[in-house]
Design a protein around this nucleic acid. Structure first.
Length: 783
DNA sequence: ACTAGAATCGTTTTT
DNA sequence: CGATTCTAGT
């Protein structure tokens, strides 16, 4: 059994124990993924079960994919039907078995944006004060209920206060709307699965007998509904393996209950418990920082994470003046490490608490011409034209989806406005027909203009025709049909604007995505495509082999590791976040979040923060995070900054870098003030009006008042005539709004440039709005 | 019905 | 600051 030799004693125990329930308490970096994959391989090799008899739940689809890949390397040709996230497994389960119940198997999955729209409708209908009962608050209240498996009736039995009366009304209406749209939200996927299993003994029997082994990863982050699901699926064989680490529980806000991990032995009294405490990932110094931090938490299992790796570099600490100089420090440090220690871009992770912090890093990275990967800005599916297209497709699959129909009923414009919509809604309610049917009827009546009716008739026909072709055509073919029939391209490009052409490009990209899906998916139907699209997460799309610096939130790093990690924005109000500083449980969760970040680092760790931060238009003073002060001074190395926080006032160790990072702030920045004469590459000569953070408002002689990023200005000494720059295919460019991109086409005549932007896709912009960026070859680390 | 400009508002993490 | 919603005017 050669594969078992690669494991340590505890890991091997965990792999070989297949007789009953098992709890693996796996500290950070202790090789839990390895244990899980080996265990599944072991089960298969020993013929304890077949692949279809194993239920394996991971935290992301990506993790599931990697696990499958690794097992496939050891045992080629295997297919695992039940390996994935709770949500994807449940979606599949419901699609297979919900036929005949309230929501049919053709349901669509509403994302949080869709749910917000739906919730807004509810609140409006109930005439609730939307200052007090905001869609966000009500949504999260209902989400909590669903995670606790309480349907409106269950909830009604538990409380009677005025607020809960309102919640009850909202919940009922919200559910009603979901039902009438034949839609489910994320929480429904879990809750309805549990209800289905509870109410259908035959189904429960079948599934629980089928799953001879149930394995759950990241058990510390499961919520009540998921827990119930685990119990149900494993109820027959009770051969359940869960892996978790209470110190890494960071999803309380979405219902995760750490206590479920804590009480596993009570739920399964005969359970074995195996602790994996040997860390293979990090240096001793990094573990010491992590362990010291976690000692401060009260609610946790005692543990002793250890490594026999030698000490390693001390943790780099940098206190910057502004957010921008913090970013600059990080990027220059990366340069230096690449130069001295042969690191590749992909070895670095820049981590932060909130997505808003990524901006500064992006800006500096762009300036420096360094490639990066921004994870968690899944902008693609948020683009208008893509959402429109998805809305069409949803209606095709599920004509009851009135939310989606409403979105596209007047796109392209068909003369359907508020008045017509009101009529349609009325008709739909009176006649008990869906909205699409109502549109069909109205279009053959005498109501409204003839032109509008003709166009409505066409729309209904196109959609219904697409629905009929569902069984015979692939997703891609249907998408193309609809785009052609509705002249969607023409609609986008008719305005003749650059934006329109860019949107058309995005449509092409979408078609490519659909076709790609067709080629790798077993099921190439439109339904399958829509289901797939709505359940992929940010991290699923991350490709780590690309040779780019990685930017992401602390939350998204779970399960990942990087040779060099930068933890940034370690300030009070950011981490612990201002919203999580009051309650002890919240605070402890923030500390765990910090712990998760620290334990991602393999070789080197840097912790940074800024004295002041520019957010939402104002600059605010910031204090160092209490978590940073919980790390012993003795394992920190202080890099230059303007001052030391009081907690470190004893430390004397200063580095020569100091001057480097201060220069940006004190010299260049300080020197730019109102009245200064400046030159901009494209706008020419002007005078500074105001300086706000990183943005400077300048009154240009030729171009008038514009706001530009400070870095693209230089103090002007003479009358440097601005040159017009020609862009060509392949040039890297920067745009104030869309940020970095690569030139695709350039039209001399109109000075329009087509750019594919990293985050936002294709756009057409005026050449004047672009600044050239150094190509990767040009920009070597400075010596 | 549609549009452009004004006003408002929110401060986190995500399947 | 920036995204979203509201409003007034065509």
């Amino acid at each position: 059994m050669s594969y078992l030799d690669e494991l340590n004693d505890e890991q091997r125990d965990a792999v070989k124990y297949c007789e009953g329930p098992l709890l693996i308490l796996a500290g950070a970096g202790s090789g839990k993924t390895r244990v899980l994959t080996f265990k599944i391989t072991h089960i298969l090799k020993q013929n304890y079960a077949r692949p279809s008899e194993i239920l394996a739940v991971t935290f992301t689809n990506k993790a599931a994919g990697e696990m499958k890949e690794r097992i496939l390397k050891m045992m080629p040709g295997i297919y695992f039907p039940s390996m994935g996230t709770f949500h994807s497994i449940c979606a599949r389960f419901l699609r297979d078995h919900m036929e005949g119940s309230a929501q049919s198997s053709r349901f669509v999955i509403y994302d949080s944006g869709d749910c917000r729209v739906l919730m807004r409708e509810c609140l409006k209908e109930l005439n609730l004060d939307d200052k007090v009962f905001t869609p966000e608050r009500m949504s999260s209240a209902i989400s909590r209920l669903k995670n606790k498996l309480l349907d409106p009736e269950d909830f009604a039995r538990t409380g009677i206060s005025y607020d809960s009366r309102i919640t009850y009304d909202v919940y009922c209406l919200y559910e009603e709307k979901l039902k009438s749209n034949n839609a489910l939200d994320f929480d429904d996927l879990l809750m309805k699965s549990v209800f289905l299993l509870r109410n259908n003994k035959e189904l429960l029997d079948r599934y629980s007998r089928m799953f001879k082994y149930v394995l759950i990863d990241e058990y510390q982050d499961i919520n009540h509904a998921q827990y119930e699901l685990v119990l149900l699926f494993s109820s027959f064989h009770r051969k359940i393996t869960v892996v978790g680490d209470d110190d890494q529980s960071i999803y309380r806000f979405r219902g995760a209950e750490m206590s479920l991990l804590m009480r596993f032995e009570e739920d399964f009294p005969q359970a074995r418990v195996i602790k994996l405490e040997r860390n293979y990932r990090s240096t001793k110094v990094i573990l010491e920082a992590a362990n010291n931090l976690m000692k401060k938490n009260r609610v946790r299992r005692e543990k002793n994470l250890w490594t026999d790796r030698k000490g390693g570099e001390k943790i780099g600490y940098f206190r910057a003046v502004t957010g921008r100089s913090e970013a600059r420090f990080v990027i220059l440090k990366i340069r230096e490490l690449m130069r001295n220690d042969n690191y590749n871009y992909r070895d670095f992770a820049i981590l932060y608490r909130t997505n808003a912090q990524s901006r500064l890093f992006e800006e500096v990275l762009i300036q420096e011409g360094m490639p990066y990967n921004l994870i968690g800005s899944l902008k693609y599916y948020e683009r208008k034209e893509i959402k429109d297209l998805l809305a069409y497709l949803r209606v095709v699959v599920n004509r009851q989806d009135s939310l989606s129909l409403r979105r596209i009923i007047n796109v392209p414009p068909r003369g359907v406005g508020d008045v017509t919509m009101k009529k349609l809604e009325h008709l739909s309610r009176e006649e008990h027909i869906d909205l699409l049917e109502a549109a069909g009827r109205l279009s053959s009546s005498k109501e409204g203009s003839a032109k509008m009716r003709a166009q409505l008739t066409h729309l209904v026909e196109v959609l219904e025709e697409a629905t009929r072709s569902l069984t015979v055509k692939t997703a891609g073919a249907i998408v193309e049909d609809i785009i052609d029939a509705l002249k969607y391209r023409e609609y986008l490009t008719s305005s003749g604007t650059a934006e329109g052409v860019a949107r058309e490009e995005n449509i092409n990209e979408f078609i490519t995505v659909v076709k790609e899906f067709e080629s790798f998916s077993v099921d190439a139907s439109l339904e399958a495509f829509l289901a797939h699209i709505s359940l992929i997460s940010d991290i699923d799309l991350w490709e780590d082999s690309e040779g780019r610096i990685n930017l992401m939130t602390f939350h998204l790093t779970k399960g990942l590791e990087f040779p060099v990690v930068f933890m940034t924005g370690l300030e009070e109000k950011l981490i612990p976040h201002i919203m999580s500083q009051e309650k002890e449980e919240d605070l402890e969760e923030e500390r765990r979040l910090c712990y998760v970040g620290i334990t991602r680092a393999m070789d080197r760790l840097f912790m940074t923060h800024a004295e002041e931060r520019f957010m939402r238009g104002v600059t605010e003073k910031r204090d160092v995070s209490r978590f940073l002060t919980e790390i012993p001074e003795s394992i920190l190395t202080l890099y230059g900054g303007t001052a030391l926080p009081s907690a470190f006032s004893q430390a004397k160790q200063w580095k020569s870098e100091r001057e480097d990072y201060c220069r940006d702030e004190t010299c260049e920045v300080e020197s730019l003030k109102r009245g200064d004469r400046v030159t901009h590459q494209f706008f020419g000569v002007g005078r500074v009006l105001t300086v706000t953070g990183d943005t400077v408002k300048v009154d240009f002689v030729d171009k008038g008042i514009k706001r530009v990023v400070r870095d693209y200005l230089s103090k002007s000494l003479g009358n440097n005539a601005p040159k017009r720059i020609r862009f060509q295919k392949g040039d890297r460019v920067y745009h104030a709004k869309w940020r970095s991109g690569v030139v695709c086409r350039s039209d001399e005549e109109s000075s329009l440039v087509m750019v594919i932007f990293t985050g936002t896709g294709t756009q057409f912009v005026q050449a004047e709005e672009l600044s050239p960026l150094p190509t990767l070859q040009d920009k070597r680390p400075p010596l």
